[in-house]
Amino acid sequence: MAWNEPGGNSNNQDPWGGRKGGDRKGPPDLDEAFRKLQESLNGLFGSGKRRGAGDGSGSGGGFGLLAIGLGLLAAVWLYSAVYVVDEQEQAVVLRFGKYYETVGPGLNFYFPPIDRKYQENVTRERAYSKQGQMLTEDENIIEVPLTVQYKISNLQDFVLNVDQPEVSLQQATDSSVRHVVGSTAMDQVLTEGRELMASEVKERLQRFMDTYKTGITVTQVNLQSAAAPREVQEAFDDVIRAREDEQREKNLAETYANGVVPEARGQAQRLIEDASGYRDEVVSRATGEADRFSKLVAEYRKAPDVTRERLYLDTMQELMSNSSKVLVTGEKGQNNLLYLPLDKMIDSRGTAAPSVPASAASGDLGSRVSAELQQRDLRSRETR
């Protein structure tokens, strides 16, 4: 029956178990409430018979609370000791502060606080960006933005060797970029030299990481378009325009050279070939003349008079074939002069026999001149 139901002894009882007008007034103290809770738990776990209201908290109640506390601690410890490593992750376990093992993917167990666990994603590529003003080799200040991509290749080194390895990576990046930019001219940094610079920065940065044994592998370094500081941007724009004009003039000069130089080389080659042909012709003619003279000497030794006469006739024929008039004088003491109009003789012969070749006509004319000279020689001898 509730304390306030009709017919109940509501005047003598209160909801706190005391009597109205008695010694206890107000709600019970905390010790009594805690004692009742403890008795309820003891009955739940079967720790013995119920104590009376006047009995204090006994050893059975203390043991029950201790068991509950130990159970809660065991549950918390078990929850923190069991962990799962994903397929993309690894975990490094330290036992008493010393490296114990590297754990792969799966369900794993360790013993805190004896063990400590460091779990990281070792396949994901990480990246960070930086930008700063740097001094080039030719003492110009430029702003160079870059992005570095990296991943953890050795989790043990990443955890144990260096304190804050990613901070060390950023500091090493500053050192590498400043070294490379400081040894490169501004033109190369602003134009086509960025790819080569990125390769040099990556190589130098990876060498730093390997020296420090950070367990970090640099996968890519991207140098973005460098620019001048805002205060001197107009001057840099003028420099860039001047560089473009210079490159355009160079291209025009190269185009002109590509058109002129091959032509000059062709002319030079033609002259060389003409000179070579003329040389071969002269050498061949001289060789032929020498061979002819050698054979003529042999014939002259066999018949000197005939050979001499033949040489004379051949020479006269060669000379007269190039002249249109011939004057022949007699011997000393004679005033006889013979005029031979060869041009008219050739023309009349050519009219009479137009089909006769010029070489044949000149040969016949030489024979006639030779005969005429022989007749004059005979007449002069008879006159004597």
Rank of each mutant, 00 (worst) to 15 (best):
residue 222 N to A: 02
residue 263 E to A: 06
residue 258 N to C: 03
residue 241 R to E: 15
residue 2 A to W: 06
residue 297 V to H: 06
residue 347 D to Q: 13
residue 32 E to T: 13
residue 86 D to T: 11
residue 49 K to I: 08
residue 362 S to R: 07
residue 180 V to G: 00
residue 200 E to D: 12
residue 362 S to Q: 14
residue 320 M to V: 14
residue 260 V to Y: 07
residue 76 V to K: 02
residue 235 A to S: 13
residue 133 Q to C: 06
residue 114 I to G: 02
residue 5 E to M: 09
residue 81 A to K: 00
residue 2 A to V: 05
residue 53 A to V: 08
residue 196 L to S: 13
residue 266 G to V: 06
residue 206 Q to A: 09
residue 85 V to L: 01
residue 302 K to N: 11
residue 382 E to D: 14
residue 107 L to G: 09
residue 353 A to M: 10
residue 215 G to Q: 00
residue 89 E to V: 01
residue 241 R to I: 12
residue 234 E to A: 15
residue 114 I to T: 11
residue 113 P to M: 05
residue 195 E to I: 00
residue 151 K to P: 01
residue 280 D to P: 03
residue 88 Q to G: 15
residue 105 P to R: 08
residue 4 N to V: 05
residue 341 P to D: 15
residue 181 V to Q: 01
residue 123 T to S: 10
residue 289 E to G: 03
residue 282 V to Q: 11
residue 102 T to Q: 12
residue 296 L to R: 02
residue 199 S to Y: 13
residue 336 N to L: 13
residue 163 D to M: 06
residue 327 L to Y: 14
residue 260 V to F: 07
residue 35 R to G: 06
residue 12 N to V: 04
residue 291 D to L: 12
residue 13 Q to N: 12
residue 360 A to L: 11
residue 47 S to P: 00
residue 54 G to Q: 13
residue 125 E to H: 10
residue 213 K to D: 04
residue 122 V to Q: 05
residue 259 G to W: 08
residue 236 F to R: 02
residue 180 V to N: 04
residue 47 S to Q: 10
residue 330 G to D: 10
residue 62 G to S: 09
residue 71 G to M: 15
residue 225 S to N: 03
residue 87 E to V: 04
residue 361 A to F: 04
residue 184 T to V: 02
residue 176 S to N: 04
residue 287 T to N: 13
residue 23 D to Y: 14
residue 40 S to R: 14
residue 32 E to P: 00
residue 320 M to A: 10
residue 372 E to G: 08
residue 196 L to K: 08
residue 287 T to Y: 08
residue 141 I to D: 01
residue 167 V to F: 14
residue 33 A to D: 15
residue 19 R to S: 13
residue 339 Y to Q: 14
residue 343 D to I: 05
residue 5 E to I: 03
residue 85 V to P: 00
residue 307 T to S: 13
residue 223 L to D: 03
residue 125 E to Y: 12
residue 235 A to N: 08
residue 109 F to G: 00
residue 126 R to G: 07
residue 267 Q to K: 06
residue 216 I to P: 05
residue 160 L to Y: 04
